[in-house]
Simulated assay, not measured.
Amino acid sequence: MPDQLELSELLRRSFRAHRPQGRSELGDDTNFFEAGYTSVLLTAVLADLVTKGVELTLVDMFRHPTMRLLQAEAARRHGVPDPSPTADALPWEQP
C-alpha cells in the first residue's frame, strides 16, 4: 500500500505527463478545469494512475478537482491516515 508521499508523487507525475500544452504545473489548490484539463485529459491521467495501482474514478476527479482534494481522496481510499490536523485536535496535538 502506498503511503501519503508516494500517492502524492504518483498523482503529480501523472498530471505532469498529461499537462495541457503551454500550461504550468498544478498548484495544490488549482482547479483542474481552470488549469485547462479537459475530461479527455483527466481520463488519460486516470488511466495512468490505475495502471500504477491508484484506486480512483473519473467521478472522483470531478468531485475533488484540486490536487489537495484528490490526494486526500486517494489516501482515504488506500487507507492512508490523513496527516493534516483536524478541527477537533487540540493545539499540542497538531503537527
Rank of each mutant, 00 (worst) to 15 (best):
M1Y: 09
L5I: 15
S8M: 07
S8W: 01
S8A: 14
L11K: 00
F15G: 00
F15K: 01
F15P: 01
R16C: 09
H18N: 06
P20N: 05
Q21R: 09
R23K: 12
D28A: 13
T30L: 08
F32Q: 02
E34P: 04
E34K: 09
Y37A: 04
T38S: 15
S39G: 08
V40R: 09
L41K: 05
T43W: 04
A44G: 10
L49I: 06
T51A: 13
T51R: 12
G53R: 08
G53D: 06
V54C: 09
E55L: 13
E55K: 09
V59P: 05
D60E: 07
H64N: 15
P65G: 14
T66Q: 05
T66C: 09
M67I: 13
L69D: 02
L70E: 00
Q71A: 00
Q71I: 01
Q71D: 04
E73F: 03
R76A: 13
R77D: 03
R77N: 10
R77V: 02
P81W: 10
P81E: 15
D82M: 12
P85I: 13
A87H: 07
D88E: 11
A89Y: 05
L90N: 07
P91R: 12
P91Y: 05
W92C: 10
Q94G: 11
P95K: 04
P95G: 08
P95A: 11
P95F: 10
P95Q: 11
